[in-house]
Simulated assay, not measured.
Amino acid sequence: MATFPDKPNRRFQYSFHDRWGFLSDQHVRSLAWLLDAPDLLAPAAPQWQGKIGTLDVNFGFIRQWLKELDACPQPLHAWLNLHSFTRLGRYAERLMAFYFTHEGSLISHGLQVRGANQETIGEFDFLLDYADSLGHTHGNSVLHLELATKFYLLRTRIGPSGFSHGMDYFIGPNLADTLGLKVRKIIDKQLMLGQHPAAQIQLSRQVGMAKALIKGWLFYHEDEMPDAAELGLANDHCRGFWCTISELTARTEQQYLILPRLSWLAPEKAYLDQVLNKERLTEALFNKFQHESMPVLVAIVEPQQGFAIETERGFIVPDDWQNKAGQRNNSQ
């Protein structure tokens, strides 16, 4: 099974725990991940046409702020209104809106643009005050920032010349989309919203810059890794493995946690009584896959100072997932 060391390749989990291990609240940890995790795409890669942004974070500031927030997380919990979330993307947006509000840059979050007949044309994830490289603020214009937090599994296709990869071979676990489709939609459509006449009428300040902030994890089967630079991926992006449930049974004995959707962002830190051995995990997955085919994200954990600490993560998929993913590619 693939392993992914960091610097250049030690697993991201280790560096995250080094920096943020003192945080205990799940939602504060998720916010720390959003602020600190590597970008999924390389902003300087030519294929992104300068449309991929990155956060400029003062880590001295946020370290103390997150420490205080972790000690008293109730304001964040109230802001999130956790019972209202069914989508991980919306959860991540609310976390980032909390940060931008505290930072003082947030002008608007989730602003919908409507046409003359009140039809929805699009939505701005974030409109922000921003400064240029010299620190000059742009009082007459705003930054339009689109946030995407995505999880994709690389499906391998065997062609005439052997293995081949592409952005459209990174497929969502539910087979609903691909990384290629998502990035094209963001660049070609969502980031263009500020140029729409209806948006220009609605906004009191013009959009001076539009960028996409793309965070997430990519998952690879066994030791197969594409050329990150060729695809425009950030070399240090967060990564894990995927395997079928049959392949899981052949793994060495390890300790696992099943990660619910709102725990997918940051490396997990949980209580030891939640840990499953391979036998119990496999049993739970077989029972689940009898009724639904959605892959399950699990964390491999080790005990540390009374907690189960994530050291690796991966999607466990039904045995026929690869074939269904191929059918999804072929239907594009």
Rank of each mutant, 00 (worst) to 15 (best):
P5V: 10
P5T: 15
H17T: 06
D18M: 04
R19C: 10
R19G: 01
F22E: 08
F22W: 07
L23H: 07
D25P: 03
Q26P: 05
H27G: 03
A32I: 07
D39M: 08
D39F: 00
A44Y: 02
G53W: 00
T54S: 13
V57D: 09
D70N: 12
P73L: 04
Q74R: 11
P75R: 04
H77K: 13
W79S: 12
R87M: 03
R87I: 08
G89Q: 02
A92L: 01
L95G: 01
M96G: 02
A97V: 08
F100T: 02
T101K: 09
I107L: 09
R114P: 02
N117G: 10
E119M: 03
L128F: 02
D129N: 12
Y130Q: 04
N140E: 14
V142H: 00
L143Y: 01
A148F: 07
K150M: 09
L153C: 15
S161Q: 15
S161R: 14
F163C: 04
S164V: 15
H165V: 14
G166W: 06
F170R: 01
I171V: 15
G172S: 13
D177H: 10
D177P: 12
G180K: 00
L181W: 05
R184Q: 15
I187R: 01
Q200T: 00
I201G: 00
S204N: 11
K211I: 02
L218M: 08
H221Q: 13
P226E: 04
D227V: 09
A228G: 08
L233Q: 03
D236V: 05
D236E: 14
C243H: 03
E247T: 03
E247R: 05
A250G: 04
L259R: 11
R261V: 08
L272E: 11
L276R: 07
A284C: 09
F286W: 13
K288S: 11
H291A: 10
P295C: 06
G306R: 10
F307K: 10
G314C: 10
I316A: 03
D320W: 06
N329S: 09
N329M: 15
N330T: 07
